[in-house]
Design a binder for these strands. Structure first.
Length: 532
DNA sequence: GCAAGGTC
């Protein structure tokens, strides 16, 4: 008996084959570029069988309208709600993937579906069933459900084969149909209605404008517009505050008023006059506290995009493209992961060693991290998310360089990885509280006592302020200045890509894998612009 | 010329 096993991606087919065959499987190419075939003998339910593993690459089928309504002027946009839709294999790579599946299905008696354990995976399972039973209707169909790519889980899955869940798959069918009908109809309606009403030439691509609508695009744009409205609605207001400066030779510091700011100029001026009338400052307290700056937790896909866009000023979409290439070239672990904690027995040491040579700017740090006497290493703090399929994003081997942007991204991922394996930074905060004419002021200083992860994580700084001059409780001094200053309230800052990604995550717009695409689309369509 | 989801 031959058993055809289909995974959602080649990587899973390869890994499950490795685990079930004990590392002894034959790999051959298929007619599909990225979907390999893995074969090995296996004992299934007490029977000797030949296992044949292959994969799709995500969805195999795509929902499309009947040909009658495909032209933009063939029907009214509202007719797209009644037109019939069907699932078909889109032209291109997926046709090759279908051919691979059908060739194998003809020679097999069983079909075991190893798709991801989520709704999309369940839906893809039925796509695979549809394509395979077209050429072999007598296939016995089973679903393998595994939660992690480890032997125990995979073995449990093959010994507890179940049936695919049609309800879950149909939930995805419903989503697809809603997305397509609403998206296509509103896109046509808006575009046809408005394309000649305004001058869109600035936004046109290939001579025409596209005013697309989609259930992810629209709320994404909404988040951008919301901030723009907040900025437009801002009415600047003046405020006043008292600033106290201390100076003694080269030593100087600034004291912040406990009232922070007042919006009543007369009151602020009166309090200022009281200070001027009795300007001698009395130190009422000197407080010290230990402060800790936490090292980052291991890197998930969305966190990579958020930090990458902030630290490197690189669009999320390009970060993902570079990460994907670095992964395929073997420099990086799998770039699509929700996991931000390392498994207990992960070989972190080996991963750090891989960065300790090569003369990179971080090699010396990696070497220190490995040296026990440095006491710099600490097992990364768990971030609390685990997709049970992939580890956090981390470097596998040294990237020799070539593409400047890819280098910058790789460097960030390495530094983040080394940082999350390092101890937190420690500092000593000093607060000096003074009284002038009944008003309270505080100066705060921070001395970093142990930089630890900050040494390698050059994207973050801490303190920056010089340590304070030494003050003693009860001491008095004459300030160098007691000034009444005026300020103006500022509108909220414009939205950054990092903020937008975070908000989309918060509101559940798109998925980890698509958030960057939706942002990219805003720019492509000219709905929003992004500057430096 | 349209959506959003999956992946190399």
């Amino acid at each position: 008996m031959r058993v055809l096993n289909v995974a959602e991606k080649n990587k899973v087919a390869a890994q499950v084959s490795q685990l079930l065959s004990g590392g002894r499987c034959r790999q051959t190419n298929s007619c599909a570029t990225y979907c390999k075939i893995y074969e090995f003998p296996f004992q299934l339910q007490g029977q000797q069988v030949e296992m044949v593993f292959t994969s799709v690459a995500g969805h195999l089928l795509e929902l499309e309208f009947e040909p009658r309504v495909k032209g933009w002027h063939s029907c009214a946009p509202r007719d797209l709600y009644d037109a019939s839709v069907h699932k078909g294999v889109p032209k291109g790579e997926n046709e090759k993937i279908r051919r691979n599946l059908q060739q194998l299905a003809r020679t097999c008696q069983w079909l075991v579906l190893w798709l991801d354990c989520d709704r999309e995976g369940e839906n893809i399972a039925f796509e695979v069933i549809q394509v395979c039973t077209e050429v072999n209707p007598r296939l016995t169909i089973r679903r393998a459900r595994f939660s992690a790519l480890i032997y125990a889980d995979v073995a449990r899955a093959i010994n507890n084969l179940a049936l695919p869940n049609e309800h879950e798959a149909k939930a995805v069918d419903a989503r697809q149909e809603i997305d397509l009908r609403i998206g296509a109809s509103f896109t046509r309606l808006q575009t046809l209605l408005l394309q000649n009403k305004f001058d869109w030439s600035e936004y046109a691509q290939d001579g025409r404008v596209m005013l697309s609508y989609g259930p992810c695009q629209f709320p994404t744009l909404g988040l951008i517009v919301q901030r723009a409205w907040e900025i437009q609605a801002h009415i600047p207001e003046n405020f006043w505050y008292i600033q106290v400066l201390y100076r003694d030779g080269p030593k100087a510091c600034e004291f912040q008023w406990h009232r922070k700011r007042l919006y009543d100029q007369a009151v602020a001026a009166m309090l200022h006059e009281l200070c001027i009338a009795a300007p001698l400052a009395t130190v009422t307290a000197v407080e010290g506290a230990r402060k800790t700056r936490w090292a980052p937790v291991p890197l998930s896909t969305l966190e990579m995009q958020k930090r990458g866009s902030q630290y490197l000023r690189m669009p999320g979409e390009r970060i993902m493209r570079h990460a994907e290439e670095l992964y395929q070239q073997g420099f990086l672990s799998y770039p699509r992961t929700e996991t931000d904690q390392f498994d207990q027995n992960y070989d972190l040491r080996g991963m750090i060693e891989a960065q300790a040579g090569g003369g990179a700017p971080w090699s010396a740090y990696a070497q220190r991290l490995l040296a026990p006497e440095s006491q710099l290493f600490r097992w990364p703090k768990p971030g609390g998310h685990d997709d049970k399929a992939h580890p956090p994003i981390h470097p596998l081997k040294h990237y020799p360089g070539g593409d400047r942007e890819k280098e910058a991204l790789f460097e960030f991922i390495v530094r983040h990885f080394l940082a999350c394996c390092s101890k937190d930074a420690e500092g000593q905060e000093t607060r000096v509280i003074i009284d002038i004419g009944g008003e309270g002021f505080t100066a705060t200083g921070l001395m970093v006592t142990e930089r630890n992860f900050l040494e390698v994580y050059r994207y973050q700084s801490w303190g920056g302020q010089d340590s304070l001059p030494v003050f003693q409780q009860g001491q008095t001094f004459m300030p160098a200045a007691i000034d009444l200053k005026q300020g103006t309230t500022q509108p909220p800052p414009r939205l950054t890509e990092r903020d937008l990604i975070a908000k989309m995550e918060e509101y559940g717009i798109g998925t980890d894998a698509t958030v960057a695409d939706h942002i990219q689309k805003q720019l492509e369509r000219g709905y929003a612009i992004k500057d430096e």
